[in-house]
Simulated assay, not measured.
Amino acid sequence: MRIDPGDNSANILDIVIDPGKIGEFAGITQMEGTSSLIADQDGYGLGFLNTISVNEDGKILGVFSNGTVRVLAQILVATFNNPTGLLRVGDNMFDISANSGAPIIDEPGSAIQSKIMSGVLEQSNVDLAEEFTRMIIAQRGFQANARVITASDEFLQEITNLKR
């Protein structure tokens, strides 16, 4: 690679980067000199990302094949002074409005009293027993109304027959 330092000098820098070959201790390595003997290791060996987990503080942890666990990211939680003022944009998503106020963003478990529950299946927010009971009550009400209509129809037919 040739680099012009840009200071109007005639000297152009020639830089050679030798990444080496896989399996050899040549080129760019973490070893000093050209020795191929590793006398001591300072650090972790090569590790691949095996699994990802999320703790209740919202930290996304990566578990690597060499036994190390690293924080990869952090989930933040937002709350609003007036959550009912958020604008519904569809697909269970909301947007900020002037009525909702500015979001207060913080880590779970801190000033915002919330926790992240990893590996938990979210169930519907509907109480099935209560909704089933309401459905039965509505069905019974419909049946009662249908009987009233039938009875009033029979009553009107009887009146019509008496008139003749």
Rank of each mutant, 00 (worst) to 15 (best):
I3K: 10
G6E: 11
S9P: 01
A10T: 09
A10Y: 05
N11P: 02
I12F: 05
L13Y: 13
V16G: 08
I17S: 08
I17Q: 09
D18N: 15
I22F: 10
G23I: 03
F25G: 01
A26T: 15
I28C: 07
I28E: 09
T29V: 06
E32M: 09
E32V: 08
S35W: 06
S35D: 14
L37M: 12
I38E: 00
A39C: 04
G43S: 10
Y44V: 12
G45W: 01
L49Q: 09
N50K: 15
N50C: 12
T51C: 08
I52F: 05
I52V: 15
V54H: 02
D57C: 05
G58N: 02
G58I: 01
I60H: 01
I60E: 00
L61T: 03
L61P: 00
G62L: 04
G62D: 04
G62I: 00
F64L: 14
S65C: 11
V69E: 13
R70E: 05
L72H: 05
L72I: 06
Q74K: 02
Q74G: 05
Q74V: 05
I75D: 00
L76P: 02
L76M: 14
L76W: 14
L76S: 14
V77I: 15
A78D: 06
T79Q: 05
N82T: 03
P83G: 06
L87I: 08
V89C: 03
V89N: 02
V89D: 01
V89E: 07
G90C: 10
N92G: 11
M93D: 12
A98K: 10
N99G: 12
N99L: 04
S100F: 12
G101L: 01
I104H: 07
I104Q: 09
I105Q: 04
I105F: 09
D106A: 04
E107N: 06
P108M: 03
G109K: 01
A111F: 03
I112L: 06
I112D: 01
K115S: 15
I116C: 03
M117I: 15
S118R: 07
S118T: 03
E122M: 08
Q123V: 11
Q123F: 04
V126C: 04
V126L: 10
D127G: 05
L128V: 09
L128F: 06
A129F: 09
E130G: 07
F132H: 03
R134I: 00
I136C: 03
I137F: 03
A138L: 09
Q139K: 12
R140K: 14
G141V: 00
G141P: 00
G141D: 01
Q143H: 06
N145I: 10
R147E: 02
V148M: 06
D153A: 08
E154M: 13
L156E: 12
Q157D: 15
E158S: 14
N161F: 10
L162N: 15
K163A: 13
R164I: 14
